[in-house]
Design a protein around this nucleic acid. Structure first.
Length: 490
RNA sequence: GGCCCCGUCGUCUAGCCCGGUUCAGGACGCCGGCCUCUCAAGCCGGAGGUCGCGGGUUCAAAUCCCGCCGGGGCCA
């Protein structure tokens, strides 16, 4: 329980060795929610000590992704690569206290002994050879210029116990832990070491991270104790899983947040969806605003079992948020997608914008993502290339050519090409011919849009305008009369 | 292989701590109906879980205890 009077401080600590993963985004979200809920601070630390794999573009992606989600951090970003002195100083302290020691074993030697242990069926751990070196021997080897790493001198007996906010008590026997490396031969700290030093130095009170870090926790706890730091509380979030229940990765589909952004997922939908992966509101109401999420979030209510990332549900939720959008706002969001098709400019001209404002409400309730707008709005911007299967079969019925021809004439004669006038004309024609309105509407839709599903016919025709509607109807008539419908496949 | 975590409808989950009020509730998806010019949206309804398995405790267990199995993670 959080009874401490000190301020809550949490952090997200991604390494810029890849694009922002949705799992990292979820971890960031939970940290952020926890911080906001408790009036604490949410911090960002970039773990860029891996010189080889860290890339500025990944760092950019991470920063932009977090901003996009609205997960704002409260203090300047901390870069591990800029605090090497700090790690060196703390490592030196451990060395002087005898809680760390230099190890001169070469990778080859280590590998050889590991194989030997494996062959004997023993769990392969460092055999602590260099821990038994005398001070004199160590100094001699260092003076010889032999490369070495620094290892933590793990207690040989006893156990570490910690209380995980989500899982309760977790314990590890010290004998299972080995003398792990804290400083590599190039002088860079290892993950576990830098993480502990930083979390302490940054005043982190709660470490909220993925379940895959549980086995790092006992090592880190030993570091806290050895360095004389007060350990934070831990909460290990359930992993995000793919459909086969293994850790979510590229082979399961899109995993970087950016892919979802490009797809046209709204940040509020992503936040809402991610919040529900492992946590559930007490009132069982799933659609929540950011403010509600903050108010209702409870770390201790997080479920410990892994959660499959269900794209279908995300799409549903995104559709929900899209439908909530004011039309002009949605229209604005769709601009880049249409511009990419070459349909409009970005920013759009005045005419393009007013047309877009008429198109948008007609596709709004059918969209699940912004990118789907392209498919849904295509016939508003381009003459249908042909007709899909259903449309062709509807057009091929007897009398359709004559019917559409007559309709096109009557529509052409309209002074005011409005929803009401068009509807009136269509129904009138149907009535005169003793047809049901649908029998005129369906082929008309096929001729005008090339398909059988879409927005209300009369509304869509008004937006399209007289000229285009009449033109498309007559084109269909020509195709039907020339008997080339079969070739007009989409 | 060692250690650790997890196990309620296909999926996200409520309920489990404080055993009975639950012939296990909600959401996504699926199926059907209504609406309707189609699709969608919306509304209404339905199918779907022997609560991983086995034993025990108890008048009573998804809920407590023990064992097992399965899945996953980390280290290798």
């Amino acid at each position: 329980m959080i009874t401490s009077v000190s301020e809550v401080r949490v952090r997200i600590a991604p390494s810029p060795t890849g694009y922002l993963h949705v799992g990292t985004a979820r971890t960031a979200l939970f940290n952020w929610l926890f911080a906001r809920k408790n009036n604490g601070k949410f911090l960002l630390r970039i773990e860029d000590t891996d010189q080889e794999r860290s890339k500025p573009e990944f760092e950019q992606d991470i920063i932009e992704g977090l901003k996009w989600l609205g997960l704002d951090w409260d203090e300047p970003i901390v870069y591990q690569s800029q605090r090497l002195d700090l790690y060196r100083r703390e490592a030196q302290r451990l060395l002087e206290m005898g809680k760390a020691y230099p190890c001169f074993c070469t990778p080859e030697e280590l590998e050889e002994r590991r194989q030997a242990m494996l062959a004997k069926g023993i769990a392969p751990k460092y055999d602590r050879k260099c821990r038994r070196l005398t001070q004199v021997e160590r100094e001699r080897l260092i003076k010889e210029g032999r490369p070495y790493v620094l290892r933590f001198a793990m207690p040989l007996e006893g156990e570490v116990v910690f209380h995980d906010i989500i899982r309760g008590e977790i314990r590890f026997a010290n004998r299972e832990l080995d003398d792990f490396v804290i400083v590599k031969s190039d002088g860079f700290p290892t993950y576990n070491f830098a993480c502990v030093v930083d979390d302490h130095e940054m005043g982190i009170t709660h470490v909220i991270r993925g379940e895959d870090h549980i086995s790092n926790t006992p090592r880190q706890l030993h570091l806290y104790m050895a360095l004389g730091y007060e350990p934070p509380q831990f909460a290990h979030l359930p992993l995000l899983l793919g459909s086969d229940r293994s850790k979510l990765s590229k082979r399961h589909g899109a995993v970087s947040l950016n892919e979802y952004r490009k797809m046209g997922i709204l940040p509020e939908a992503m936040v809402n969806f991610l919040a529900l992966l492992g946590w559930y509101p007490r009132d069982q109401q799933e659609i929540k605003t950011r403010e509600q999420l903050i108010a209702e979030f409870e770390l201790s209510d997080v479920k410990p079992s892994g959660a499959i990332f269900d794209l279908e549900k995300l799409l549903w939720m995104n559709g929900h948020y899209i439908r909530q959008k004011p039309v002009d706002e949605l229209a604005r969001m769709v601009i880049p997608y249409f511009a990419q098709q070459g349909w409009i400019h970005d920013p759009p001209t005045e005419d393009e914008w007013s047309y877009l404002l008429k198109v948008t409400p007609l596709i709004q309730e059918r969209m699940r993502t912004l990118s789907e707008a392209v498919e849904l709005a295509e016939f508003f911007y381009r003459e249908p290339e042909g007709y899909d299967d259903k449309a062709r079969s509807r057009l091929s019925k007897d009398g359709v050519a004559e019917l559409l021809s007559e309709l096109s004439n009557r529509l052409e004669a309209l002074i005011e090409f409005s929803v009401e006038q068009v509807e009136e004309t269509v129904r009138q024609l149907a009535a005169e011919r003793g047809l049901k309105a649908a029998e005129v509407i369906h082929p008309t839709r096929a001729a005008v849009t090339g398909r059988m599903e879409g927005p209300s016919l009369f509304h869509l025709m008004e937006v399209l305008g007289k000229e285009r509607c009449v033109g498309r109807l007559r084109k269909a008539v020509r195709i039907l009369n020339s008997g080339s419908l079969a070739a007009a496949e989409k």
